[in-house]
Computed example of a mutant assay.
Amino acid sequence: MSVLLSLLGTFSLFSLMAVGGANALLPEIHRYVVESNGWMTGTEFAALFAIAQAAPGPNVLVVSLIGWKVAGIPGALVSTLGMCGPSSLLSFYVARLWQRFRASPWRRVIERGLAPVTIGLVLGSAWLLSRSANDGWASWLLCGATAAVAWKSRLNPLWLLGAGALLGWLGLV
Protein backbone atom coordinates (compact mmCIF):
# COMPACT_ATOMS: atom_id res chain seq x y z
CA MET A 1 0.00 0.00 0.00
CA SER A 2 2.84 2.41 0.79
CA VAL A 3 4.31 1.84 -2.69
CA LEU A 4 0.97 2.76 -4.27
CA LEU A 5 0.69 5.90 -2.15
CA SER A 6 4.26 6.82 -3.03
CA LEU A 7 3.54 6.36 -6.75
CA LEU A 8 0.33 8.38 -6.50
CA GLY A 9 1.91 11.22 -4.54
CA THR A 10 5.04 11.51 -6.63
CA PHE A 11 3.34 11.25 -10.00
CA SER A 12 0.74 13.77 -8.84
CA LEU A 13 3.56 16.24 -8.22
CA PHE A 14 5.17 15.33 -11.53
CA SER A 15 1.83 16.00 -13.22
CA LEU A 16 1.94 19.65 -12.24
CA MET A 17 5.54 20.02 -13.43
CA ALA A 18 5.18 18.15 -16.74
CA VAL A 19 5.01 21.11 -19.07
CA GLY A 20 5.58 19.47 -22.42
CA GLY A 21 4.40 16.05 -21.36
CA ALA A 22 5.77 13.16 -19.37
CA ASN A 23 8.91 12.90 -21.51
CA ALA A 24 10.03 16.30 -20.23
CA LEU A 25 10.37 14.74 -16.77
CA LEU A 26 12.11 11.49 -17.75
CA PRO A 27 15.38 12.32 -15.96
CA GLU A 28 13.51 13.05 -12.73
CA ILE A 29 11.26 9.99 -13.13
CA HIS A 30 14.39 7.89 -13.71
CA ARG A 31 16.02 9.34 -10.60
CA TYR A 32 12.92 8.59 -8.53
CA VAL A 33 12.28 5.05 -9.83
CA VAL A 34 15.81 3.75 -10.40
CA GLU A 35 18.18 5.70 -8.19
CA SER A 36 16.07 6.71 -5.18
CA ASN A 37 13.81 3.68 -4.79
CA GLY A 38 15.64 0.95 -6.72
CA TRP A 39 12.40 -0.40 -8.12
CA MET A 40 14.07 -1.27 -11.42
CA THR A 41 17.38 -1.03 -13.22
CA GLY A 42 18.31 1.63 -15.72
CA THR A 43 18.10 -1.00 -18.47
CA GLU A 44 14.56 -1.94 -17.46
CA PHE A 45 13.61 1.74 -17.37
CA ALA A 46 15.02 2.25 -20.87
CA ALA A 47 13.14 -0.81 -22.12
CA LEU A 48 9.84 0.48 -20.71
CA PHE A 49 10.47 3.85 -22.33
CA ALA A 50 11.18 2.16 -25.67
CA ILE A 51 7.96 0.11 -25.43
CA ALA A 52 5.96 3.24 -24.59
CA GLN A 53 7.43 5.10 -27.57
CA ALA A 54 6.77 2.21 -29.94
CA ALA A 55 3.16 1.86 -28.84
CA PRO A 56 0.54 4.15 -30.35
CA GLY A 57 -0.85 6.72 -27.97
CA PRO A 58 0.32 9.54 -25.73
CA ASN A 59 3.81 9.78 -24.28
CA VAL A 60 2.36 9.34 -20.78
CA LEU A 61 2.19 5.58 -21.43
CA VAL A 62 5.68 5.29 -19.97
CA VAL A 63 4.23 6.25 -16.58
CA SER A 64 1.65 3.46 -16.78
CA LEU A 65 4.36 0.93 -17.66
CA ILE A 66 6.54 2.09 -14.78
CA GLY A 67 3.63 1.75 -12.36
CA TRP A 68 2.87 -1.71 -13.75
CA LYS A 69 6.51 -2.81 -13.32
CA VAL A 70 6.62 -1.50 -9.76
CA ALA A 71 3.22 -2.64 -8.43
CA GLY A 72 1.30 -4.52 -11.12
CA ILE A 73 -2.03 -3.35 -12.47
CA PRO A 74 -2.86 -1.28 -9.34
CA GLY A 75 0.50 0.47 -9.77
CA ALA A 76 -0.26 1.23 -13.42
CA LEU A 77 -3.66 2.65 -12.53
CA VAL A 78 -2.36 4.73 -9.62
CA SER A 79 0.62 6.08 -11.57
CA THR A 80 -1.54 7.04 -14.53
CA LEU A 81 -4.14 8.64 -12.27
CA GLY A 82 -1.40 10.56 -10.47
CA MET A 83 0.16 11.77 -13.71
CA CYS A 84 -3.08 12.72 -15.45
CA GLY A 85 -5.42 13.69 -12.61
CA PRO A 86 -3.99 16.86 -11.05
CA SER A 87 -3.09 18.59 -14.31
CA SER A 88 -6.46 17.66 -15.82
CA LEU A 89 -8.32 19.05 -12.81
CA LEU A 90 -6.25 22.22 -12.86
CA SER A 91 -6.93 22.68 -16.58
CA PHE A 92 -10.64 22.05 -16.08
CA TYR A 93 -11.03 24.65 -13.36
CA VAL A 94 -8.85 27.23 -15.07
CA ALA A 95 -10.91 26.78 -18.25
CA ARG A 96 -14.14 27.27 -16.27
CA LEU A 97 -12.76 30.39 -14.64
CA TRP A 98 -11.56 31.63 -18.02
CA GLN A 99 -15.02 31.06 -19.46
CA ARG A 100 -16.72 32.85 -16.57
CA PHE A 101 -14.73 36.00 -17.27
CA ARG A 102 -15.05 35.83 -21.08
CA ALA A 103 -16.44 39.39 -21.28
CA SER A 104 -13.91 40.84 -18.86
CA PRO A 105 -11.51 43.45 -20.23
CA TRP A 106 -8.52 41.86 -18.47
CA ARG A 107 -9.17 38.56 -20.29
CA ARG A 108 -8.79 40.26 -23.65
CA VAL A 109 -5.61 41.97 -22.46
CA ILE A 110 -4.16 38.63 -21.34
CA GLU A 111 -5.11 36.98 -24.63
CA ARG A 112 -3.52 39.80 -26.63
CA GLY A 113 -0.42 39.62 -24.45
CA LEU A 114 -0.12 35.84 -24.71
CA ALA A 115 -0.45 35.77 -28.51
CA PRO A 116 3.02 37.24 -29.18
CA VAL A 117 4.51 35.07 -26.44
CA THR A 118 3.01 31.98 -28.06
CA ILE A 119 4.18 33.01 -31.51
CA GLY A 120 7.65 33.68 -30.11
CA LEU A 121 7.81 30.27 -28.45
CA VAL A 122 6.70 28.52 -31.63
CA LEU A 123 9.21 30.46 -33.74
CA GLY A 124 11.95 29.80 -31.19
CA SER A 125 11.24 26.08 -31.29
CA ALA A 126 11.15 26.17 -35.10
CA TRP A 127 14.50 27.96 -35.19
CA LEU A 128 16.08 25.50 -32.74
CA LEU A 129 14.83 22.49 -34.71
CA SER A 130 15.83 24.05 -38.03
CA ARG A 131 19.34 24.77 -36.79
CA SER A 132 19.68 21.17 -35.63
CA ALA A 133 18.28 19.61 -38.81
CA ASN A 134 19.72 21.83 -41.55
CA ASP A 135 23.35 21.43 -42.49
CA GLY A 136 23.59 23.04 -45.90
CA TRP A 137 22.08 25.65 -48.15
CA ALA A 138 19.76 23.13 -49.85
CA SER A 139 18.20 22.01 -46.59
CA TRP A 140 17.79 25.64 -45.46
CA LEU A 141 16.12 26.43 -48.78
CA LEU A 142 13.78 23.46 -48.41
CA CYS A 143 12.97 24.48 -44.85
CA GLY A 144 12.19 28.07 -45.85
CA ALA A 145 10.10 27.00 -48.85
CA THR A 146 8.17 24.51 -46.73
CA ALA A 147 7.49 27.14 -44.08
CA ALA A 148 6.30 29.63 -46.71
CA VAL A 149 3.99 27.10 -48.40
CA ALA A 150 2.60 25.98 -45.04
CA TRP A 151 1.97 29.59 -44.02
CA LYS A 152 0.41 30.80 -47.27
CA SER A 153 -1.59 27.75 -48.37
CA ARG A 154 -4.01 25.23 -46.96
CA LEU A 155 -2.00 22.31 -48.33
CA ASN A 156 -1.89 19.31 -46.00
CA PRO A 157 1.53 19.27 -44.27
CA LEU A 158 1.91 15.59 -45.09
CA TRP A 159 2.40 16.54 -48.76
CA LEU A 160 5.23 18.85 -47.72
CA LEU A 161 6.74 16.12 -45.57
CA GLY A 162 6.49 13.69 -48.48
CA ALA A 163 8.10 16.19 -50.85
CA GLY A 164 10.97 16.71 -48.42
CA ALA A 165 11.42 12.95 -48.02
CA LEU A 166 11.47 12.53 -51.80
CA LEU A 167 14.07 15.29 -52.20
CA GLY A 168 16.17 13.66 -49.47
CA TRP A 169 15.84 10.24 -51.07
CA LEU A 170 16.95 11.68 -54.40
CA GLY A 171 20.00 13.15 -52.65
CA LEU A 172 19.07 16.76 -53.35
CA VAL A 173 18.91 17.71 -49.70
Rank of each mutant, 00 (worst) to 15 (best):
C84F: 15
V19W: 12
G21Y: 04
V33Y: 12
F49L: 15
M17E: 08
F11G: 00
W39T: 13
R102C: 09
A18W: 03
L26D: 04
G42M: 10
A24E: 03
L8W: 10
V70K: 03
Q53I: 02
G9K: 14
I51K: 07
T43W: 13
A54V: 07
W68C: 13
Q99D: 14
L97P: 05
I51Y: 06
G72L: 06
G85F: 11
S15L: 04
L25P: 08
A52N: 09
G85P: 00
W98R: 04
F101S: 13
P74R: 02
P27C: 03
L81D: 08
A76G: 09
I51C: 05
L89D: 00
A22E: 11
F45L: 11
S15A: 08
Q53E: 12
A103G: 09
V78I: 14
P74L: 08
S104W: 15
P74M: 05
S79W: 03
E35V: 15
W68K: 12
H30E: 10
I29T: 00
L26W: 05
P27W: 02
G82Y: 02
P27N: 01
Y32G: 11
P74S: 07
T10S: 07
I73V: 15
G9I: 12
Y93M: 01
L26N: 05
I73F: 15
E35S: 07
K69F: 12
L13P: 04
P86M: 01
S64A: 15
T41G: 11
R100P: 01
P56R: 01
S79R: 01
A46F: 09
V60M: 14
V78A: 10
A24M: 06
L13F: 09
S88N: 01
G9M: 11
F49S: 13
A103N: 12
A46V: 12
G20K: 01
Y32N: 13
I51A: 09
F14H: 06
L81Y: 03
S12F: 07
V78D: 05
A55V: 07
A76Q: 07
R102W: 10
G21E: 03
A50Y: 09
T41S: 15
W68A: 15
C84I: 14
L65A: 03
A103S: 13
V33M: 12
A52M: 08
A24S: 12
T10P: 04
S36P: 02
I29F: 04
G67A: 12
I73D: 06
A50T: 13
L90D: 05
A18H: 01
L90E: 00
E28I: 10
A95Q: 01
L81Q: 08
R102L: 09
N59C: 08
L89T: 03
L8A: 12
I66F: 05
F45C: 10
L61A: 07
S87T: 13
L90T: 01
Y93T: 04
F11S: 02
Y32R: 12
G75M: 11
P86K: 03
S15C: 05
L81S: 06
H30M: 06
F49I: 11
F45V: 10
P56L: 02
L90Q: 00
F101W: 14
L26S: 04
V34C: 03
A55K: 02
